[in-house]
Design a protein around this nucleic acid. Sequence first.
DNA 1: CTCGCCGATGTGAACGTACACATCGCCACC
DNA 2: GGTGGCGATGTGTACGTTCACATCGGCGAG
Lengths: 344, 344
Amino acid sequence: MTTETARGAEPERVRAPNIRDVARVAGVSYQTVSRVLNDSPSIRPETLQRVRDAIDELGYRPNQAARALVTSRSRTIGVLAAQTVHYGPATSIQAIESAAREAGYRLSITNISSSEYASIKSGLDYLMSQSIEALIVIAPQVRVFEAISDLQIGVPFVTLEATGLSSDHSLWVDQVQGARMATRHLIELGHTEIMHISGPQDWIEAEARMQGFLRELGDADLRTRAPILGDWTASFGYYAGLELLRYRDFTAVFAGNDQMALGFMHACREMGLSVPGDISIVGFDDVPEAAHYAPPLTTVRQNFAEIGRRAVALLLGELRGETEMSHDPVQPELVIRQSTGRRP
Amino acid sequence: MTTETARGAEPERVRAPNIRDVARVAGVSYQTVSRVLNDSPSIRPETLQRVRDAIDELGYRPNQAARALVTSRSRTIGVLAAQTVHYGPATSIQAIESAAREAGYRLSITNISSSEYASIKSGLDYLMSQSIEALIVIAPQVRVFEAISDLQIGVPFVTLEATGLSSDHSLWVDQVQGARMATRHLIELGHTEIMHISGPQDWIEAEARMQGFLRELGDADLRTRAPILGDWTASFGYYAGLELLRYRDFTAVFAGNDQMALGFMHACREMGLSVPGDISIVGFDDVPEAAHYAPPLTTVRQNFAEIGRRAVALLLGELRGETEMSHDPVQPELVIRQSTGRRP
DNA sequence: CTCGCCGATGTGAACGTACACATCGCCACC
DNA sequence: GGTGGCGATGTGTACGTTCACATCGGCGAG
C-alpha cells in the first residue's frame, strides 16, 4: 500500500470542487474549463461535452467570490429601500429582483428605518461596502440625493418613484400627472372644496402629488388649502378624518395613498357620513385590496413592476456603456370606482 | 525629477486602494492592517491609530470578494421567498435583513413565482450558487422540503410560518393555535355553522390553519364542512362570498387571511348583508389596514418581525456551532374588533 | 546576567478564477 | 512545399485578503 501521499490525499478536507478538479476529471486544462464556463466560442463540441459531464459529476459550482475578485465585478446591484412592506416598493423590488437575476446579477437590499441623514448614509455605506456595480433607490426621500453626492457613490444609479429633481437619474411614474388626474376627476364631478392628505414632507413623491394637486386646482381657479401632512398609514387617515370632518368645509378628499384613503373612509363611516354621498374620496397606488374597500376606492394606478424592470434595464445598459435610454415617465391611470360621486 | 518609476506610478489605473496601500501610508506591514481590520487584540494603540488614519485618508474599504475567497465564508444568508408583496413575508424579511446586517451578514433574496417544483428548485439553485452559509425559507410550500433534501443543501436552514412537518428546521407562529382561537371565538358567540376559506392547499400555513379550525370544531362537536380553497387574495374572498352567500347556510366565516376576509365582507355588503349583524367574520394576520376595514376586522395577530429575528438568531447560533436553541412557536393573539358578533 | 516567554510585528503561502500570452497542429494559399 | 493564419488548447500571473509561521525586542525570574 503506497501511503506515501497520505498527507496530500487522505485527510483532504471535504472542500468544494474547483475548476482544476473539473479539469482533471475531464482530462483538459483548467483554462479550458474556464472557457466552457464563459461560453467561449472556440471549444470543440466533444471537449465541451466532456467538461460539462465532469461539472455535473462533481456538482461543481463556480466560486463567485473568486470570480468577483479577479474580474473586479461583483455582479451586484444595490437597492436602498424604505417602507418595503408597502405594496408599491415591494412590487418594484420583486420586479427588480427578477430582472436582475435574469441578467445574472444579484441584489443587495438594505432598508433604511428613518429618514434621518445618518440612517441613509449608513445604508448607502453598507451597500458600497458590498462593492455594488449600480444602485437603485426606492427611498424617495429628499436627503438621499445629498447622501449620494456626499458619499461619491461613483456607480450608475437611479431613483424610483421620485420626480425630476435630479432627472438624469430618475425613473418614475408621473406623480404630478397622476395627482392632476385624480384632482380633475373630483373637479369634474362638481367639487370645489377639495382637501388633500399628503404623504410625509420629505418624500419626493408626496411632494410631487401635492404639486399636481395644487396645480390642477390653480388651473381651475379653485381655492387651495394647505394639505395635511400624513405618514402614509391608514391610522393617520383615520385620525385626520375624525379631526377634519368636525368642520366639514369640504366635499372631497384626495389622499396621498390608498391606505390613508381607507382610514379616512373609516372616519367618515364613524361620523355617519356617506361615501360618496357626502364625501368623495380618491386614493393613490391602486393596491390590490382597493377594489374591495367599502366602497371600492377610486384611485390612481401605478405600474410599480414596470418601473422596477425599467430601472434594471437602464442600469444594465449604462454598465454596458450604452448611451442613455429613455427616461420617459410611466403614465399612471385613473381607476374610477365607487368612492367618488357628484357634489352633494 | 526622478521619473524612473513612471511605468509603475504615473499611468496607474484608478484602482481602489487595497490593504497594501493602506500599509504603505501607515508605515506598517499589510498584515498589521489586516489585524486592525479583524480587531486583533495585540496592536499598539499608536499603531492602531496610524492605520485607522490611513484607512480614512485613502477611503479604503475591505474587498469582500477577496475576504470571502480566502476564508471561504460568504457571510450571506439566502432567503427563498414567495409572495413578498404580502404584509407578512415582507415584514419578516425586513426584520431578517436588519438582524442579518447587524450581525455582519448580507442577504440574498430570491422570489419564486409559482409553487411548481421546478421553480422552487431553480430558486434554491440560484441561492446555492451564491454560496450562502444558511437558508431561510419563507415560501411555506410543501414541495420546498422535497427540493431542499433533493438538492442536498448542506447548510443550516429554517422555514418560517410553516408548521412542524420538519420541526427541526421550522420556526413558526403557532398557526394551529391561532386558528383554534379564531374558531373558538366564533363558537363562543353562539355560531354553529362556520365556514372556512382557506389559503392554497400547497401552503403549509394554510393547511395548519385549516387543521386548527377543524380540530376546534371537532372539540365542540360541531358539524364540519369542507373548507373552500382560496388563493389569499381579496378578489378570491369576494367571489367566494358571492357564491357562498346565495345559500346562507352559515352565520360565520373564518378566513385564512385578512385580504380574503376583506373580499368576503365586500360580497356581504353587495348582497345586502350586515357584518356582524347577519354574518360574523374573522381574518388572520392583522395587517395594519385591518383595523380600518368596514367594519374593523376581528383577526389573529402574528408577530412576523419576531419570527424573522428568531430565524436569524437561530441560524447564526448554528453557524457558531452552538447547540440548538429554542424552537418554541411564537404565540399568536386574537384581536377582537367589530366584524364578529353573537349569532343572529 | 542569562534564559525563556510574550507582545508586537513581518513574511510566505494559499484561496479559485480570468486574462494575457504561448504553444501546437492543421489547412489553404501562393 | 514552405508559410501564414487560425482554431483549439495549455501555462503563467494577478486579483486582495487571511492564515500559519517567523522574527525581534524587552522584561521578569532564576
